[in-house]
Design a protein around this nucleic acid. Sequence first.
RNA 1: GCGCCCAUAGCUCAGUUGGAGAGAGCAGUGGAUUUCUAAUCCACCGGUCGGGGGUUCGAAUCCCUCUGGGCGUACCA
Length: 663
Amino acid sequence: MNILRELRRRFAEALGAIVDDPGPLLDLIRPAQDARFGDYQANCAMPLAKRLHQSARDVAESLVARLRVGDLCDRPEVTERGFINMRLRDDWLDGWLRGASADPRVAIEPTASPRAFVIDYSSPNVAKPMHVGHIRSTVIGDAIRHILAFLGHTIVSDNHLGDWGTQFGMIIYGYKHFLDRRAYEKHRVDELGRLYKLVNQLAEYHELKERLPKAESDLARMDAQRADLAARVETLAGPERKKVAKDADRLDAKIKEAREEIGRIRARLAAVDDDPVKRALAREHPAIGERVLEETARLHEGDAGNRRLWAEFLPDCRLELAKAYQRLGIRFDYELGESFYHDFLGKVVAEFESRGLARTSEGATCVFLDGFETPMIVRKSDGAFLYATTDLATIQYRMATWHPDAVLYVVDSRQSEHFAKLFAAARLWGYDSVELRHVSFGTVLGEDGKPYKTREGDAVSLASLLDEAVARAYRVVCTVDDAKPSGRELSDEQRRRVAEVVGIGAIKYRDLSHNRTSDYVFSFDKMLELDGNTSAYLQYAFARVHAIFARGGIERPLPAGTERSADAGPPFPTVEERALAMALARFHETLDDVTIDYRPNMLTTYLYELAGHFSRFYTNPQCKVLKAETAELREQRLRLCDVAGRTIGQGLRLLGIQTVDQM
RNA sequence: GCGCCCAUAGCUCAGUUGGAGAGAGCAGUGGAUUUCUAAUCCACCGGUCGGGGGUUCGAAUCCCUCUGGGCGUACCA
């Protein structure tokens, strides 16, 4: 049961008698921010006070008088300033706990209004090995999928692989000119990765070489302007002088930026020039950029040789990805890559043209959209299609095949303009009833605040990050297990299993616990932390619950239990027990909150706090479970442990994180 | 130039969309184990919520402005 929703329903009735539109006021009913204010608070009296020409306190009082929550809460308290504080009745909470203990879904009923979702996430480029930048889309998308599915929605997850673009032109070109046959036969994907990097580097070399003179002349021009400003400042006084000085400061910033840019260009060029082999290759392939595009075009046109190469590369590339997904425990319902849509693209463009939605401009076929400075180009002047075209075809296919109510794109926020145009174009096209949603996330930055790269310019590979996480977790498992009072408890096989679960979990949790819209600074050490607010903390709480049941030899699910006897005393004698029960009862509203704006970090925050309540309960000497003073207390505490363990386990599962019984 | 996003403790980040002394983790300091797992718990230290103005009963949150960052910006994805 979503308690918050229930309270809002009750308030809607009470407010209905006072105002016409209770809707917005209901948002002001929320969990209490501070335990001393109770469990929930309603802040709707204050904004009403002015409208009704009464004091907030009086409004609150009359609201409470109309409110019927006696079965749920103790009598609501009204404060001087007009806050309404509510505390759930202990017997109600006790009844809830008994129900949750008997329910495999810990008292979370599926939604009454299920929707059909298509979720598009991960979507890596198959020609390159996955790196740390791919974690966010993959992990966030997977968590959203699990959460929506658990709440009863219908989900199709679709990995929109990049298997058809310029990157294949690059490896085809590389294969034709730079292949190391022996390396290719030994490990195809590694050799393809090398070819990709090499071709990319050479193409970039020529591009930068062309750009450098302009960058240098721009800088020279700015330097001249700067000198000019410096001279003018001397001739001025007062506000005029201030203004010019400020312009000079701005220009200085730009000059600094330009110098840095030129420095970066020179470094990239030097990486080729200083390597005799690469320098020779660069000389031999002066038009590599255009040649790559030609290879791509030939692939798309159906050139037999290039199609054969593509078909040769693809299975290995996909196998490599599959390994990464398997290790992460992630599966997709479909993996329809860009290549799947190739045959639809011409028709899509033709339809946009015939319906007058697109027209030719500067040789390219463009969809002009209100509110955008630049059009969405669906066909280049050389006839090639773009990812915008593919994305439109993908919408058409998904709508026709799965009829979703909503399509979620879990993609980097840097593509927000692309999606805004895509969705606008889709609406013009007639898809105006489906909710198309860019679930954007921030960029992973390096310590320097720039998008993450290692010094060599290559991102850290996902595999090496996972390996390191598991290795570190293994070291901790061994240290901790060796130090147990009664000696080591885990076999090496168990230790390795725990390390895998804890290590992978740490990485996923670290990412999911950030607000998805924020950029965040990548830190190898922070990513692999196992102390504090980390998945290991939750996994540890889970294992402790398991230990209690194992130690007591108690089977689960728990039996229904005896009725409370009249002289049993309060159901939650300590604040720790009450707080834990209350936290458990909030699982449902947390999940509902997550889905409002697809924010998994609301779930991590909840689980961390829940595990904290459990730990405080567990470490309180007055909350002994197996050695509880009475049979009734023991039963009750076992219920708390049971529901706590299953809630944490379920919550972690929804985040795509596994648990172990012992660690 | 235009557009979007951001600035919160030494560091990394939350802050439920405007609510009651501004929070967590890490780092630092000090405590707790005859105990169902100490990968734990408790306490202390640490803040001009980038600056200034405004709206409001009430602002880290909304508006304006300044400063400083990031990203995007016609044929890459």
